[in-house]
Design a protein around this nucleic acid. Structure first.
Lengths: 64, 64
DNA sequence: CCTCTTTGTAAAATATACTTGACATAAAGT
DNA sequence: ACTTTATGTCAAGTATATTTTACAAAGAGG
């Protein structure tokens, strides 16, 4: 399923997928795939994304 | 660096690495490596571990 | 002692996260 | 019209997460 919380948090900071990808050191396609929900990123990448967006793991990646 | 919060949470529930590994569907070595801090598990595995131990991502995997 | 459980560790193989390069589309600006 | 930016998607390759098999050491209990 899509990760809309991530998409929203990125939008709230007005960052493109490309810019966020550069900030965390991965390719744009990786960010796109995570938002699309295709796969299963590593925890270190999730943490880097959270830091870039000023959120925590629970806020962006925890599934109730 | 070691993940001592994970080790402590597992100890608090009196689970061996093997039993936790079975609960979340990975090998014992994978749990051992995560506690040892060798590597970088996927987010879905982290979530499964959190569920098994009654913790959240922030409690076990967030780095301040 | 002996056995069983737990943990630590290692090497080789397999599955999959992630990259690179590319193409398509839609929206915004000139 | 043309260009630029943002997003979506795909296929082939590379890096690495995870498995399997195996061995060693320490502690608990019989």
């Amino acid at each position: 399923m899509k990760n809309l919380r991530l998409k929203a948090a990125r939008a709230a900071r007005d960052l493109s997928q490309q810019v966020l990808a550069d900030m965390v050191g991965v390719s744009r396609q990786t960010i796109n795939a995570i938002e699309k929900g295709d796969y299963n990123p590593t925890i270190n990448l999730c943490i880097a994304i959270c830091r870039a967006l000023g959120k925590t793991l629970d806020e962006l990646f925890w599934k109730q």
